[in-house]
Simulated assay, not measured.
Amino acid sequence: MRLLHTMLRVGDLDRSIAFYTDILGMKLLRRQDYPEGRFTLAFVGYQPESEGAVLELTHNWDTASYELGNGYGHIALGVPDAYAACEAIRAAGGKVVREAGPMKHGTTVIAFVDDPDGYKIELIQRD
């Protein structure tokens, strides 16, 4: 077995695709409309689905927004430099909600950004 994807429900699919591709540097891997079900699926990631896990962005045509609930945590992305990543994300119009710096109870450098729907994305600095 292997992890294939994580699904996020999004209110504005084009806005979300732009965030994940233009700001976080992922690629749009595929997109499919399902008119009978009134939804669209878009898959984004850093590599092909055959090589690693990706994100499935689900847009239900009749739903403009969602409540995130209290069970969701975050998506984590490895980055070579969390400080530079925050600057690049901010310069591209992204929202940094926790500046890069060491974890509260550790030394790992992390940061957090929000996607357009408010989903948290953790940036973890990797050497």
Rank of each mutant, 00 (worst) to 15 (best):
T6W: 06
T6M: 12
M7K: 10
M7P: 04
L8N: 02
L8S: 03
R15T: 06
S16N: 08
S16R: 01
Y20D: 10
T21N: 01
I23C: 02
L24H: 00
L24C: 01
G25P: 10
K27L: 12
K27G: 04
L28T: 08
E36P: 01
G37I: 08
R38M: 13
T40L: 08
L41I: 12
Q47W: 12
P48L: 04
S50I: 11
E51N: 10
G52V: 03
V54C: 12
V54W: 00
E56M: 02
E56C: 11
T58D: 06
S65R: 11
E67S: 15
G69D: 07
N70W: 12
N70E: 15
G71F: 08
G71M: 07
G73H: 15
H74E: 11
L77G: 11
L77T: 07
G78L: 14
P80S: 02
P80W: 05
D81L: 01
A82V: 08
Y83A: 14
A85R: 10
C86T: 08
A88M: 09
A88G: 06
A92P: 06
G93H: 05
G94H: 03
K95L: 15
K95Q: 15
V96E: 01
V97C: 07
G101W: 01
P102R: 07
P102E: 06
K104L: 15
K104A: 14
K104S: 14
H105R: 14
G106Y: 06
T107H: 13
T108W: 11
T108A: 15
V109K: 02
I110W: 09
F112N: 05
F112R: 06
D114A: 13
D115A: 00
D117H: 09
G118I: 03
I121L: 10
I121F: 02
